[in-house]
């Protein structure tokens, strides 16, 4: 006797599904978490609740992502890791606050304002 479900070897009637067993869904694969460019990041703060990003959510950052206007990004600014919205301002990237509580910041590596990765997915484990 074994303790795991052997759906293709039933003891009484043969299972009509024995050839098509597919196993559970692997969310890590759905989110491509094993790719070298994917990193999970925890959200702290509420200023992006307008975009349904809540305190404590896990975002999947993609460090190979192509930035686009309107996208959420993980950025580093004056020594901090922040979540911001990206906006294109006449060819320059601008980091925008989620609720207008902070002044917009231009992306400028010379001033230590850099895009770390783009946000590609959101995981919430408690609803």
């Amino acid at each position: 006797m074994t303790t795991s479900y052997a759906g293709d070897r039933t003891t009484g009637f043969a299972s009509p599904a024995s050839d098509v067993i597919e196993g559970p869904i692997d969310l890590s694969e759905v989110l491509s978490l094993s790719k070298p460019n994917r990193y999970p990041v925890r959200v702290s703060g509420t200023s992006f609740s307008s975009r349904c990003v809540m305190n404590g959510d896990v975002l999947i950052a993609d460090t190979a992502g192509v930035p686009a206007s309107g996208q959420l990004v993980i950025a580093s600014a004056s020594g901090q890791i922040i979540l911001a919205e990206l906006r294109n301002d006449h060819g320059r990237w601008l980091l925008i606050s989620g609720n207008g509580s902070s002044q917009p910041l231009y992306v400028d590596p010379a001033r230590d304002v850099e895009i770390w990765g783009t946000v590609t997915a959101l995981v919430r484990t408690e609803v």
Binding site: Y39, P40, V41, R42, V43, S44, G45, T46, S47, F48, V53, N55, V58, L59, I74, A75, A77, Q80, I81, I82, L83, A84, E85, L95, I96, S97, G98, S102, L105
Partner: peptide, 8 residues
């Protein structure tokens, strides 16, 4: 222990 991003 993942990296924490503060909302801007």
């Amino acid at each position: 222990e993942i990296m924490v991003a503060t909302t801007f």
